[in-house]
Amino acid sequence: MKHNKYTGILKYTLIVLACLVLSRCVYLNEVDQPSEVKAGQDLVAVMHTRFEIAEARAADRIVVGILVPKSWNAAANTTMTYTTTSMGSGTMVKIPAGVLTNGKEWPAALRERYGIGPNLLDDMEWVVFWSQTTYDVVNGDKQDVDIKIVTKTGPENMRVKLGYFIASSSDGLNDFYTNRPYKAIFKDCFEVTDGDGDLVDFCNPQLAITDPNSSLDNDIMTITFNADVVNTPLTGAQDVYFCVKAYTNDGQVIDRCVQQPGSRMPKAAGVGNRYSITFWPRQYFNVSANQTINRLEYYFTDASGNIKVGYGNTASPFVYTFKCK
């Protein structure tokens, strides 16, 4: 009798657990994407996904996210459509503000979960859409869903690793299930060509990293010398200093190339040989209220100032143009 009682409890527990651990399987099999597009032209990508339902859901929506450079303004410049095996086709719209998953709005939740993927410059954003139509799905349903994404690239030349995300509104970023009901893929380096300015490279390590990538002179700016990228004359230097000129809108050139405590770039802990300086440009260059700083030209130097490392490990300075795109 006792044995039967415990067997019953065990069976019941297993049934409940089976229901809980397998709500649905979501597959993101592949994303078709060109290797390059001209600046300002449309990038067309197709996500091939599959949903296998293991628990009925009412009023469910397909959720699709893309990780793109902020300068593309993808929320306003993207359209998404989809086709399914037997549930028809439809269009997708940006998820309204206030819709939460894991206690956060979808873009913030994806940012928390995936960050900027394998990209090296933190100037990217998650833009998240969902199907306009809601679906009542039943246990055992299987749907192949292809999502066509058309998004306009920005004006800048760049290399970037785009991210693609698929989920459902019902299960969101739920990690309880053994097979997570959401998936993401980050593609190889994609290139925007024939655009404005210097190449912005999100894919490859750079000697100089600026954060934020887009900023104005009233932002707080961080410039990092990544000494691990290639051997330079500063390899092995105890101290690295920031040597910079600021060019203002009224033609003034402000020189701050002095090796002193305020220009020293402390080595960051735990990330290899990276030396950083964080500053407020308006204060650093002591510009007047009527002046704005248009651009910076800078080097990294040793304590004597005699050894300088510039753009691409040459004698030319790194150039940073203040802009907001």
């Binding site: 934020p212 887009s214 900023s215 104005l216 009233n218 932002d219 707080i220 907001c324």
Partner: peptide, 9 residues
């Protein structure tokens, strides 16, 4: 956002 609107403090 005191500078570029894309940057939030």
């Amino acid at each position: 956002s005191p500078g570029c609107i894309n940057n939030t403090y």
